[in-house]
Each structure stands twice: as structure tokens, then as C-alpha cells.
Design a protein around this nucleic acid. Structure first.
Lengths: 167, 167
DNA sequence: TGCGTTTTGATCCAATGGCTTATATACTTT
DNA sequence: AAAGTATATAAGCCATTGGATCAAAACGCA
């Protein structure tokens, strides 16, 4: 690495976990490594873990998260706008996920108020049925991939730090 | 949550960092939470942090990672196939990123061997010049977002765990 | 040498995503 | 109640992605 780039912030070793690469800039380096490793971990794991779902007809892993959020609403269902906020996705993305899940008969939509300004989502018989097969398979896939690399204790620590980072 | 879903692996509290939600299934839960929190952290931070780059004409944050990898190759440049492996992206994605970066005059391509079976990538004058302005701005943006939520020490721990998870 | 296999790169098609706009409804203020 | 603002959803435009496939070069080895 050139001195120029070192001083200008180009760091060829951003993936490293080492703490002493820069003598004078450890804080910035630590934070940058967090970011680049989130990107790479996401890129590496998403295709692996998502594959089992795709084969089961779940086109997007976020559908599972949407199911969880609907379920949190209990018998009264859950507002689409609430789910979208919980999942950190833009409105148009939520709208399109709902369209696709409707096509797959995996959610039921109920407009409240006369027009179509607010919609409440419910599970369908079909999506309730997924609990028996697909979700356990998904959980098993996650477990297989993650447990190969981390201890349970490390899993807790990692989860806690990721949650802090989202707040 | 229903008993049914609890036993079938649907967990309305996957985002939680708590360790004692399930009495009998803590390991699975720990690993699942890792996964879902990676997804949400990525979804939340990518638009925030990527915005400054887009405004500067860097169309995809991965371009920065590609620059870093090229730079690691030093004066001899770096094989496209090596970069693609380092970044965990499929071959066709790398091919297209190179096409776009060529159009933007941000990389130079050199085919080795007669045909075009192997390509080595180099920085251009333009991309070297980015060190002065855009990258420091990007680093500052990352630092601003991450340092607001984590201490430096937590950053190191998080990085180390993410690296373990990728290996 | 000759031939099958592996590696690398580019492209085709359908599906998806980001951004913006259109539309309808609800709320607020005077 | 009229006007203006805020909220919620969908749709249109265009660029990008994913998966599969095609094409070309290098390798392995009898």
C-alpha cells in the first residue's frame, strides 16, 4: 500500500480483523471493516441459505420475515405499512412483495377504510401450512451454515452487536 | 405465538438478542437470529451509506471493493477472476461490473494470452484520483453511521465474528 | 497430436429493484 | 366546508440482476 493511499483512506486490508494495522487510525479502520464485512457476509450467505427456499417456491427470503410480522399481529392481521417499517424496506418494495405473495396465495389482503388506503395482511391456509415443511427446512439450512462457523456463544454476541448497529 | 408455531420453528422474536426465549432450543435460535439480523442490518445500512457514493458518480458500492482488490495486486494489476472470488460474486456479475467501470473510465483492462481468456485489471488515472475526494467521503459516511451505534472495541469484535462466519 | 474437461468471459431472457409519479384517502387549519 | 398537507398504495420507466447458455482458450493426458 502506498503512503498516499494510506493517508487517503484506501486500505487494502479492510477485511482483516487485526487491530494494529494502522498505528494512527484504529477507530476509523475498525468501523470501516464492520461495514465491508457486512457486505461480504451478506453476499456469501444469501445465495447459500436462500437456495432451499427458492426450491420450495418461496421466491424471496423476505417473505418469511413478512410471515413473521403478520403473525405478530395475531388474529387481527397486521398493517402493511407497519411491516414495511419493521423490515426496513421502502414502500414500493412492500407493495410489490404483497402483489407477488397474493399471486402465490400466501397472504390475504383486507382493505380497511372505504378506498384502498390502508391494508391489513393475513396468513392464508396455504401459508399456515408452510410451518410444517418449509420453515423447519429453512431453519435447518441457516443452522447448518452458521453453526459450522460460530459457537452458540459467538452467535449471541454477533446478534447483539448487529441489533445495536440497527438501532 | 402459538404452541404449534413455536414447535415448528416460527419465532416472532427472531430479532431479539435475548438468550432465554426458548428454554429448549437456544442453539438454533441463536443461529437464526444471526442470519435475520444480518439481513436487516444490510437492508438498513446499505441505502444510507451508499447514498454518498451514488451522488459522486460511483454507481455501485462494490466498485470501491473492486478498486481495493486491484490495488492489492500492485503494479501488475489483478486478475478479474481473483477479484470475483475475493468479493463473493458470480462470474457474470464481475463481467458486467467491469463493463460498466470501463465505460466510466475507472478501470483499464489488459488481456493476457492471445485470446481474451484472462484479463488483468488496473486502476486508471481517473480512479487513482478518486482517492483524494470520494473515498475519504465514503469512509467518513461509514464512520458516521457505525460509530453512532458501536464503540471501537465492539467494532473489532463484530468484524472478527463476521470474518469467522465467512470462512 | 488429438480430444475431452476445465476455466474464463460474454450474452440472452425473464424477473427484480430503484426512483418517480399518479391517485386516493385521511387529517388539520382556518 | 374549503384548502392545504400528510399518509398509503400502485404503476410506469428504465437499469440491473440471476440463471442458463454460448463461445473460446487452456489444460490433462493417453
Amino acid at each position: 500500500m502506498t503512503d498516499h493511499n494510506k493517508s487517503q483512506g484506501i486500505d487494502s486490508d479492510l477485511l482483516s480483523g487485526g487491530q494494529d494495522y494502522f498505528g494512527d487510525d484504529t477507530a476509523t479502520t475498525a468501523y470501516n471493516r464492520v461495514w465491508f464485512n457486512i457486505l461480504r457476509t451478506h453476499r456469501k450467505l444469501l445465495p447459500e441459505i436462500g437456495a432451499s427456499l427458492r426450491e420450495s417456491g418461496i421466491k424471496d427470503p423476505i417473505w418469511y420475515e413478512i410471515f413473521l410480522e403478520i403473525e405478530r399481529g395475531g388474529a387481527t392481521g397486521r398493517l402493511a405499512s407497519e411491516i414495511q417499517d419493521a423490515l426496513n424496506i421502502p414502500q414500493y418494495a412492500m407493495s410489490r412483495h404483497v402483489t407477488r405473495m397474493l399471486q402465490a396465495d400466501l397472504v390475504r389482503r383486507e382493505f380497511i377504510a372505504d378506498g384502498r388506503r390502508k391494508q391489513v395482511l393475513h396468513l392464508t391456509e396455504k401459508s399456515k401450512g408452510l410451518s410444517d415443511k418449509i420453515w423447519p427446512q429453512y431453519m435447518a439450512e441457516i443452522q447448518a451454515v452458521v453453526s459450522e462457523k460460530l459457537t452458540t456463544e459467538e452467535g449471541y454476541v454477533l446478534t447483539r452487536l448487529l441489533i445495536k448497529l440497527q438501532q
